[in-house]
């Protein structure tokens, strides 16, 4: 493919994706997340009992569950709101104990929190992503985004931008693997897959204790040049994540192109929050 033909194809794919692709359309807003006074009072009572190591703490949580009457998603959201402005360790860790006690499933967590990440204020979003962190990390902290795949596949609309942002900020490589697996089909373009396989070990080696070598920078830039030109938004979003974390690995030309990427999921970076 000649360079000019490649560019035409690339931009055609970009525009098509931006116009009609389910991966780029905005999700419809869900019900606003607001505090329920009755449930907040019950949560406060239960959190206080836990923090005091009160023997009645278990009963308080049972009462709370009864109040929720099976609306476990609502209960999870109300708990997130209750912990949004936690004034200290007591309330925060009591909240963590309550979350463990209520045994929310992966589906409950993702189905309740992921679609609402875009509509909430940053402080509440932070609590919600930390809740998601209880289901998307291995022991020791390594990310595992497999739990999101089934939920994303079942959605008819685009992934929530805030979820995309969260996953790429948490673990860019794992995010790319997740979205490629969901939207890329069985056969990812070999050039992009190869590019990722070349840059992934470089990223794994990077550390504040060492500067990247010239060969690593060259190899990283070459790989990100491929990913930054990919017709797939998840590849380009990965490149954006690296622009933010390791700008030396991204050539200025690729960085400029990504700044004006037609897909809002790609442009939705930290600076725009």
């Amino acid at each position: 493919m000649s360079p000019s033909r490649f560019r035409r194809t690339f931009f055609a794919l970009l525009l098509a994706g931006a116009a009609i692709g389910p991966v780029c359309a905005a999700a419809p807003p869900s019900t606003p997340v607001e505090a329920d006074a009755t449930m907040q009072a019950a949560i406060d009572t239960a959190l206080g009992a836990i923090a005091r190591q009160d023997a009645a703490a278990g009963t308080r949580i049972e009462s709370l569950e009864a109040l929720a009457a099976g609306r476990r998603g609502d209960l999870l959201l109300q708990l997130a709101i209750a912990l949004e402005s936690s004034p200290g360790t007591e309330r925060s860790m009591a909240g963590a104990l309550m979350v463990r006690r209520l045994e929310f499933t992966q589906n409950e967590m993702i189905g309740t929190l992921a679609p609402r990440l875009d509509e909430v204020r940053p402080t509440l979003r932070r609590v919600m992503t930390e809740l998601l962190g209880t289901i998307d990390r291995h022991e020791g902290g390594a990310a595992d985004f497999a739990p999101y795949a089934a939920w994303l596949r079942a959605r008819s609309s685009a992934p929530p931008p805030a979820l995309v942002r969260y996953l790429y900020e948490t673990a860019p490589g794992e995010a790319l693997r997740c979205f490629r697996g969901v939207y890329g089909g069985a056969a990812a373009a070999s050039s992009e897959a190869d590019a990722f396989n070349r840059i992934d070990p470089i990223l794994a080696r990077r550390d504040a204790s060492r500067a990247l070598g010239a060969a690593e920078v060259d190899a990283g830039r070459a790989a990100l040049d491929v990913l930054g030109r990919s017709p797939s938004w998840w590849d380009r979003r990965f490149a954006v994540a690296i622009v933010e974390s390791d700008p030396a690995l991204v050539s200025p030309a690729v960085a400029r192109r990504l700044e004006i990427d037609p897909d809002p999921l790609v442009r939705d970076t930290r600076a725009r929050r």
Binding site: S92, M93, G95, A96, L97, V99, R100, V127, E130, L131, G133, T134, R137, E139, G140, G141, D207, S209, R210
Partner: peptide, 25 residues
Amino acid sequence: ATIGVFWIDLTAYVDGIDNDSDFDI
């Protein structure tokens, strides 16, 4: 290997809890 020579003279936990997320207990 890349940081250089150092010693960790002292570490201490006070009721240490894993911190893989804010909700880790």
